[in-house]
Design a protein around this nucleic acid. Structure first.
Lengths: 247, 247
DNA sequence: GGGGCCATCATTGCATGCAATTTGCGCAGA
DNA sequence: TCTGCGCAAATTGCATGCAATGATGGCCCC
């Protein structure tokens, strides 16, 4: 632990993203500081940071409350991620890959190949794919060499369900799940191909299209919100009033 | 003042953007809290926020130091703004303007017309144009209806010289300055036209091209860094080592 | 019996105290 | 003269105290 505040921040963000607090719930300082074993000061600081990140909202009467996330909001954030990752892909294609980047991308592709290799998808294979997917998107953003772009994507991806991990179907056991993983993996492959060929516009378009899978998964998650809430408690962060719109 | 911390945050950000601190300078809590008339606690909080915004950096030994901004960094942020504003323009064109938006944009255009109307550009006219320009870009982002996009642009624009205001030439007295203002104004007009005609791709392209004026101004500012530092103290936030690259 | 008002309490926002750590400086030695 | 070391002062990070503000429950009046 580098400092109390960084530890508190990470733990608190983790709790939030795991759905430990219900939307609208007041986030009182004293019980949380007691729970995390620190005083109120670092907790206050963490709240302030989390407010910047958009995870909690400041209550008009002081203090902070847990936010709810509407479907439109998440959908919009995913669209923004698409545009930003599209820019990153275009930049990479235009500027060319520095030594080692090509190998790193290809390592991701082969890792995905082996994760999806068998006929059925094991839970380990799914975990491997998730890890690879995160790495792939992180590299795409880091390699493009635009720090502002990297920052924007990081800020944007802090919204629940907007990050690259949310691209993946949350129902890997089903046949549908594996099929969608195969599609995203194919998209990764074509994206790398376009970047290597310096086809900037194509790379950009592919990256933008890539996030459509995430939007589809979001729609699926909303439709199955009832059963999903048991598997992933974070689902309760979704604003329930949006159910109408998803119909 | 709603609270100490919001006041401190605004004042501190203002000081930073006005160049009150030299790059690398240690931002000690005690003198700053004394200067702003508060205790160290809200100042600490403001520092934390400003670190999130990328204006200050946390020192390895604790505390915060003033950041320097490289030319590439600002250039990259401007490019990101172009892409994001391009997305906003495309969305507006695709979704159509809600009632009142068209009038608001046209009000901006006529305001720009009258600001640039005379033969020579007065200082008042320049101020009017700057105000209108800010309003124009703010509306573009707000009207598009994508909160995540709005947030991304706001975060990105907090970097010095990356905001829409920096689009404008800082040398309005010269004939060049007025010429560039006329060009950006024309770009605003064509952008509104494309949006009204629902020409999404054109609107996007125009918004992306629009920020090229900002990049040109940045280059100009770097070349004239010596004399510019006297007029705009914030110029000293630019990393000096980048002078080589600008040559 | 219901509604409004008041008092009490909890909670926040800010100030400050204290210990740990770091930075800066002086000094000695090579 | 330059380098390494040790000490002291200052600064940070965190805990906690205190006043102010908002919430909550009870009580009184209608």
């Amino acid at each position: 632990m580098r400092s109390q505040q960084s530890r508190i921040l990470v733990q608190l963000r983790d709790l939030i993203l795991k759905g430990a607090f219900a939307p609208g719930e007041r986030l009182a300082e004293i019980p949380i500081s007691a729970r995390l074993g620190a005083s109120r000061t670092p907790v206050r600081l963490a709240f302030s940071t989390l407010e910047q990140e958009g995870l909690v909202a400041s209550s008009p009467g002081g203090g902070f409350v847990m936010r709810a996330f509407t479907r439109k909001e998440i959908d919009d954030a995913i669209a923004v991620r698409g545009v930003l990752e599209g820019m990153a892909a275009r930049l990479l294609a235009e500027n060319g890959l520095a030594p080692g980047m090509k190998e790193a991308f290809e390592e991701c592709l082969t890792a995905g190949d082996s994760a999806l290799g068998g006929d059925a998808l094991s839970l380990d294979g799914y975990a491997d794919y998730v890890e690879m997917n995160d790495r792939f998107h992180e590299m795409l953003v880091r390699f493009c060499g635009n720090a502002a772009l990297q920052r924007s994507i990081e800020v944007n991806s802090r919204l629940p369900f907007a990050a690259a991990s949310a691209t993946l179907p949350m129902h890997p056991a089903s046949g549908d799940g594996r099929r969608w993983l195969l599609i995203t993996h194919h998209q990764h492959r074509t994206l790398v191909e376009a970047i290597q060929r310096r086809e900037g516009t194509r790379a950009q378009a592919l990256a933008i299209e890539h996030v459509e899978v995430a939007r589809m998964n979001l729609r699926f998650a909303y439709e199955k919100a009832r059963e999903g809430a048991e598997v992933a408690p974070a689902m309760r962060l979704l604003a329930p009033s949006e159910d109408r719109e998803s119909a």
